[in-house]
Write a protein that binds this DNA or RNA. Structure first.
Lengths: 138, 138
DNA sequence: CTGGCTGCAAATCTTTTGCATCCTG
DNA sequence: CAGGATGCAAAAGATTTGCAGCCAG
């Protein structure tokens, strides 16, 4: 993977007002928003913001490693601006997702790799959040 | 969770020809098929099989713990008839998913649980499968 | 200037739902 | 026979795409 292409990619990442607004919304956001959340939030400032731009921007950010796409919510794609290694804990009731900034040793025997070259790992803990427990008790 | 309700649920699980065909297709299947895969495969024997029945049946099986829904593929819901505890390795290129029948110690400090009661965990390893490596090399 | 970006709408894809009819238990 | 299950079609969501015009670098 030549450094040249990396440079080119970054040079060609135009900082449009829309993209700045999306980046601003994502910065420090720990809600793990879906494209629709981003769209609704950013549209307040930019009423002409379109879905296509949101999807396009999220895809561009994903390619550049600036956000990660989450798979824990089976109903829609959600995004995480926190790109440092961490895991997730998701409420099976309300789909809230929180970060678990803990490292685990996840090495396992070659024999189970089925010819894959392993590039990463991610743990998805499931559970019920405090709010949902309180709600169901009411 | 009263035993009574469990009995009722099972008693009311009617074994229709369609459901038997879906169960037969799923049995021992290690492809982690999506609803569409199930539909296309089972429709060969039952040309009148409808999507609604496939989704309905998969949902019913999921409720009864007979299949598990996977989240590793962000494009669609996939199902796993292997209900024994295991993890997954997914090819980031072709989305092939293989089982990793290894146990890990995934305990972590209370302080990170954010008030959740944890009910489960699942590791998603990512990588590139042999076929995709060979293909890209060609 | 120019190639990438935006907005809008239409198209795709996946999954869900309403409802009349059917059939398992 | 009753209530759950099926099939069909339409609806609902989420995501993608085509394209003409726009603008950041």
């Amino acid at each position: 993977m030549p450094v040249r292409s990396e440079k080119h990619r970054d040079r060609r990442f135009k900082m449009t007002p829309q993209r700045l607004a999306i980046l601003d919304y994502l910065k420090g956001n720990v809600q793990h928003p879906a494209a629709d959340d981003v769209f609704r939030a950013v549209r307040r400032k930019y009423p002409t913001m379109s879905f296509a731009t949101v999807y396009n921007t999220l895809e561009a950010l994903k390619k550049r490693g600036m956000v990660k796409e989450l798979t824990g919510d089976p109903d829609k794609k959600r995004f995480d601006p926190n790109t440092s290694p961490h895991h997730h804990l998701i409420c099976t009731n309300c789909r809230k997702i929180v970060d678990i900034p803990v490292q685990f040793d996840l090495d396992f025997a070659e024999q189970y790799r089925e010819g894959f070259v392993i590039t990463g790992s991610h743990i998805e803990f499931s559970g019920i959040c405090l709010e949902c427990r309180n709600r169901s008790r009411a």
